[in-house]
Amino acid sequence: MSTAITHPPRHLPEPRAMLTLIKPITWFPPTWAFLCGAVSSGVALGAEWPMVLLGMILAGPIVCGMSQAANDWCDRHVDAINEPHRPIPSGRIPGRWGLYIALAMTALSLAVGWLLGPWGFGATVVGVIAAWAYSAEPVRLKRSGWWGPGLVGLSYEGLPWFTGAAVLLSGAPRFEIVAIAGLYALGAHGIMTLNDFKALEGDRQHGVRSLPVTLGPEVAARIACTVMALAQLLVVALLVIWGKPVHALAVFGLILVQLLAMRRLFRDPRRHAPWYNGTGVVLYVSGMMVSAFALRGLA
């Protein structure tokens, strides 16, 4: 069993560890989704770029960063097994500083969300609640291999997309925007399931019932990819129905390339899951932007 890598005792967090704690690599999906929402709204972005930029910063570095800090604090015992080099179990962020950082960023999220108006603030409240519900006891939806990835997919893709459109429209987005955002959020359930592969051993020991733990890596990988593919195929179907065949064809082409990548994933899911998350996901989010421009044309 792995043990935490210890560093000399500290009283204050190591600055570099604080950046590691909020995981900049995870900021891209919600930032991109907010931009997709802004594009899909049909509103001219030229005059609205300060609001769009603020929303992207809120969705990525602030709210997503806060969720990562909260997750690492709540997962510190699991991380001591899976990834003992992480900031909290390694001691580079000592004591309860991980919790203090998560709480401070929660307050910052709400303050910046307020600047985006009622729709932006309301969505920020939902995002903050979702982040803590995923990681913290007694709710800790992360324990479920179904509810946990679903909540993260909604928070990373669906909610930011909805927010980007709502902020620019100063009102509720139309049905087409909500439908496409919802489908991409559904498909992101598969992305989050594949992300669970890296924590397989620690999750098993600490009772986190992720799909790789409960069903095994092979079955979990096939379920994840099926969810991702079906969600995108429904997007293609809707784009065809709404008179956007060229955009539908582009998304379908991206799905075909993903299917080729999935074949490699299935050969050894535990080994290739990180590779697929860096390859197939790029194709997935590319389809999101194609769909956003299709929706823009419907405005």
Rank of each mutant, 00 (worst) to 15 (best):
I223Y: 14
V128K: 10
G287T: 02
L238H: 01
L103V: 15
F28Y: 12
K198V: 08
W275M: 10
T163M: 12
G150V: 04
G65F: 09
L239E: 02
V63P: 00
L256N: 00
R16A: 15
H7Q: 14
L154A: 15
S170K: 14
T214S: 14
K142P: 03
G113A: 12
Y156P: 00
V281L: 12
W275H: 06
V235P: 01
D268F: 01
G95K: 14
P269A: 11
I101E: 09
T6Q: 14
V63A: 15
R222Y: 09
V167M: 10
V251D: 01
V78K: 07
K198H: 04
P50C: 04
A172S: 10
A237S: 11
L151V: 13
V246L: 15
M51S: 13
G122A: 12
P274C: 04
A261H: 11
G182K: 05
A299M: 06
D79Y: 09
G287S: 01
A123D: 08
A237C: 05
S2R: 13
G122I: 07
F293D: 02
F293Q: 08
H272T: 03
E137A: 14
G120T: 08
V213C: 09
L298N: 03
G171N: 10
G216Q: 04
G65S: 10
A250G: 03
A224H: 05
A292Q: 07
A181P: 08
Y134W: 08
L230M: 08
L115Y: 05
H85M: 11
P274K: 07
V139R: 03
R204C: 00
A181F: 06
G55Y: 07
S170C: 02
R16K: 15
F266M: 06
A229N: 06
R270D: 05
A59W: 04
P149R: 05
Y156Q: 14
A231F: 04
V152N: 05
H7S: 12
E137V: 06
A299S: 15
F175G: 01
P269E: 06
I62D: 06
D203K: 10
S144P: 06
A131M: 07
K244S: 10
F28N: 00
F175H: 07
L215H: 14
R267I: 04
L239N: 01
L141Q: 02
T106P: 00
A130N: 13
M289V: 11
R92N: 12
T226L: 14
K23Q: 14
P160D: 03
A185G: 15
A250C: 07
V236D: 02
T20E: 15
I177E: 06
E48D: 11
G253M: 01
W242M: 08
W146R: 11
A69W: 11
P269G: 11
A261R: 11
W27F: 13
W146L: 15
H272P: 00
P89H: 09
G98M: 12
L54F: 00
D75L: 09
H189L: 13
N82Y: 05
I223C: 10
I62Q: 03
L168Y: 07
A250F: 04
W119A: 10
R174D: 12
L53N: 00
G148K: 08
D203V: 06
I129G: 03
I25M: 08
L260T: 03
S40G: 14
F266N: 07
V178I: 15
W132R: 08
H272I: 00
